[in-house]
Design a protein around this nucleic acid. Structure first.
Length: 267
DNA sequence: CGGGGTTCCTGGCCGC
DNA sequence: TGCGGCCAGGAACCCC
């Protein structure tokens, strides 16, 4: 499940490998979730951006090819058109003969082509909150944003409106790091500052490790990332908390598996 | 318009 | 060993 660190790792590689390349030909399976890929042709990739978990490839600065990897989407650049059609959902032939391939086992990934900046057809992107590393995002801003809803703090983090790019793994990690219970419905000013610090620490550490290897995540160069060795909370239910030794709890919250320490993460 | 529930999909895992 | 059933998970979608 690529979240911000995994998508950012992929973005950096795409930016190096794809910027300046022309998309000459495109193919996609006949599925509305990805069929827009075929409209990204006869255009040059002028830059590769990221917003939250979305990849945005600028095409001649007029359109954007938007890719969301969903749960299991991977991108790969090959020297020729694909011969291995395993899990293949879309491909683009580049001007120099290389190809950009999109594979996706669970087919949750989505591809769109829109006029630059027009995100109205992607409701989550359209209403996306600030990037976690945006200097305009402060602890006070996060405090006020969280206060606007009475949903549990973890549900708000997963909602992408308060801050962009945090998914299930890094929500659990950040809340553990900030010692805030995922079910907390009122987060005070000081703890909002702690939470923003924790989100930034967790995400930047994960980027430094090239992402977290879970399921099918792979970056462009095939690396899987090493952050899974640095997780303190996600995936550790039933094991002792690294802060206090209490066995980490697990429950469903907002429809998502949630791991936390009921002793040191306070409501 | 916010909030809650449902849907999409399939490998992996569990229990019998 | 085989198989039915269930789970994971982001975001679109539907409904109230």
């Amino acid at each position: 499940m690529p979240e911000l660190p995994e998508v950012e790792t992929i973005r950096r590689q795409l930016d190096t490998l794809l910027t300046g390349s022309r998309l000459e030909e495109a193919w996609a399976v006949p599925d509305p979730k990805v069929q827009a890929a075929t409209r990204a042709v006869h255009a040059t990739v002028t830059s590769v951006h990221r917003r939250g978990k979305y990849l945005l490839l600028a095409l001649d600065d007029r359109h954007e090819l938007i890719i969301h990897l969903g749960m299991t989407g991977t991108l790969e650049i090959t020297d020729t058109l694909p011969t291995d059609r395993h899990l293949l959902r879309a491909w683009w032939r580049l001007g120099d003969g290389r190809a950009l391939l999109f594979r996706d086992q669970r087919t949750f990934g989505r591809i769109s082509v829109v006029p630059t900046g027009d995100h109205t057809s992607l409701p989550t992107l359209h209403a996306l909150g600030p990037e976690p590393f945006d200097a305009h995002l402060t602890g006070d801003r996060l405090y006020h944003a969280l206060r606007a809803s009475r949903s549990p703090v973890k549900v708000q983090l997963l909602g992408q409106r308060v801050v962009a790019g945090v998914g299930n793994i890094y929500a659990d990690e950040a809340l553990w790091n900030a010692a805030i219970a995922p079910t907390a419905t009122r987060v005070g000013r000081t703890r909002a500052h702690d939470l923003l610090d924790a989100i930034r620490t967790v995400l930047s550490d994960a980027i430094d490790h090239g992402g977290t290897r879970l399921r099918d995540y792979r970056s462009i160069d095939g690396d899987t990332g090493t952050h899974q060795h640095h997780l303190d909370c996600y995936g550790r239910a039933g094991q002792p908390c690294r802060r206090c030794g209490t066995i980490l709890s697990h429950r469903t919250l907002g429809g998502r598996g949630t791991t936390w320490c009921r002793h040191c993460q306070r409501r």
